[in-house]
Design a protein around this nucleic acid. Structure first.
Lengths: 119, 119
DNA sequence: ACTCAATATCGACACTGATCGATCCACCTC
DNA sequence: GAGGTGGATCGATCAGTGTCGATATTGAGT
C-alpha cells in the first residue's frame, strides 16, 4: 500500500453543500490502512533516513551515505529503505553499483493530510 | 511525552533571515521523540477511538460508547485510551461512575506539523 | 452496609518487528 | 574470468506490544 491511496480517506463529498457537523467515524478498513501507513514512519531509523535523504545534496543518497550516520548495520539500513520504498515514500534508482534513494514528492504531505482527516 | 513537546522539532530559527537550502537532518533524540508520538497513533484501534470521540456529540464519549463499535474487550479499550491520554491526545474526565474522554485541541495538528518538519 | 455497574489494573500469551551476521547477487575493474 | 565492492536477501534472535480473562477499584442506589 502506498501513501497516495490514503488521499480519499475522510474527505467530504463536494456534491453536498452543507455537511453534517458530526462526521462518521473512521471505518475499520480505513483505520487499518492509515495505521499501516503510520507504522512505516513511526520508527526513529526510518524518520532519520527520510530526513537524511531530504537533507542530502540533490535530494538523493546512496546506502553508503546513510549507513554511517544511523549507526546501524548495512542490512538493517537496507531493510528500512525497502520498507520506505514499498510504502511509496522513497524511490530506489540503481545506477551501476550504487543505489540512489529519493523522496517521493507529496508522499508525506498526503499522509499528514490523511491524519488530519481523522477528526 | 505529550505531542506538544514536538512543537519545536525542526522549526527554523527566526533570527536567521536566509536559511541554507539543505537543513540539518533530524537528530537521534528528535527522531526518537517523533517516532514515539507516531507509534501512539499508528494503531487501528486508537485511530478509531480518536475518530469516535471526535465524531461523538459534544465531542466527548464514555468507554461504554467506545467498546462496542471497536469490537474489542473493555480492558483492551481502556488500555488504548490510557495510552492516548498519556500521549496528550485525549483527556479523561471521570464524573461519577462514567469516564468521559475528549480530544485535546491541537494535539494531532502539532503532530502532523512535526511530521512535515522532517523534510 | 450491601449490591451492582462502570472502569482500571494485572498477569499471561501470542504475534509482530527491529536488528544482526552470514550469504548471495550484480556490476565494475583489472 | 578472477577478484573486489555495493547492496539485497535470509535466518535467527530478542524486545516490544496488542489482546484477553480475571481481579481490583470506585461510585451509585437501595
Amino acid at each position: 500500500m502506498t501513501t497516495s491511496e490514503l488521499f480519499a480517506v475522510g474527505e467530504g463529498d463536494p456534491a453536498v453543500c452543507c455537511q453534517p457537523v458530526r462526521r462518521e467515524a473512521l471505518d475499520e478498513a480505513g483505520a487499518d490502512a492509515l495505521a499501516r501507513a503510520l507504522k512505516v514512519i513511526a520508527d526513529p531509523a526510518r524518520l532519520r533516513l527520510i530526513s537524511l535523504v531530504a537533507a542530502h545534496d540533490d535530494a538523493e543518497a546512496c546506502v553508503c551515505d546513510l549507513t554511517e550516520p544511523l549507526n546501524l548495520s548495512q542490512p538493517t539500513v537496507s531493510h528500512h529503505l525497502r520498507i520506505l520504498v514499498e510504502a511509496g515514500i522513497l524511490t530506489r534508482d540503481k545506477r551501476g553499483t550504487w543505489a540512489y534513494y529519493r523522496l517521493v514528492p507529496g508522499a508525506l504531505d498526503s499522509l499528514a493530510k490523511a491524519l488530519l482527516a481523522v477528526f
